[in-house]
């Protein structure tokens, strides 16, 4: 009986190790699957900030205008923009949107000398 007990424990250990091994393979496959989607979303976020900078949308300091432009290409996002004057004093922060987890993000510094000197840092999170 003693021998049987020892073998059963070995067997259980073997089963547990096999399950862990299988879980690791399945988990690894899942990780590989999600990576390319994140790259594509990061590229889209980065493109969006470039375009929003070039059209002067980021420098407008107008929250509803910025929101209406981003709404054209995404429905699930979070934006945070910090504005600084020529003395690098942070005089305005704008943030809106709801994405707080499972997001990719892009960050971009920008500037504008149209009406007044503006230096800003914009972050865009996309889900």
């Amino acid at each position: 009986m003693r021998k049987g007990f020892v073998l059963s424990t070995d067997l259980l250990a073997g089963i547990v190790i096999s399950i862990i091994f299988i879980s690791l393979i399945v988990f690894r496959a899942g990780v590989i699957d999600s990576s390319s989607k994140e790259v594509l979303r990061s590229v889209e976020a980065s493109d969006a900030l470039i375009v929003l900078h070039k059209t002067g949308v980021l420098a407008s300091e107008n929250e509803s205008y910025i929101k209406s432009e981003i709404d054209k290409f995404s429905s699930n996002y979070y934006v945070s923009i910090n504005y600084f004057d020529e003395n690098l004093t942070n005089y305005l922060n704008i943030s809106f949107g709801e994405v707080l987890s499972n997001y990719v993000f892009a960050k971009r510094p920008f500037y504008s000398y149209n009406n007044k000197s503006i230096i800003g840092v914009a972050e865009l999170r996309l889900k």
Binding site: K3, G4, L7, S8, L11, G14, I15, S18, I22
Partner: peptide, 23 residues
């Protein structure tokens, strides 16, 4: 007792091997 354990082990081992090979 040893034979029973052995048979069960073989069945479980084969099941695992089949599962792993399919997976």
């Amino acid at each position: 007792v040893f034979t029973m354990d052995f048979i069960i082990s073989i069945i479980l081992f084969m099941s695992m091997m089949i599962m792993i090979s399919i997976l």
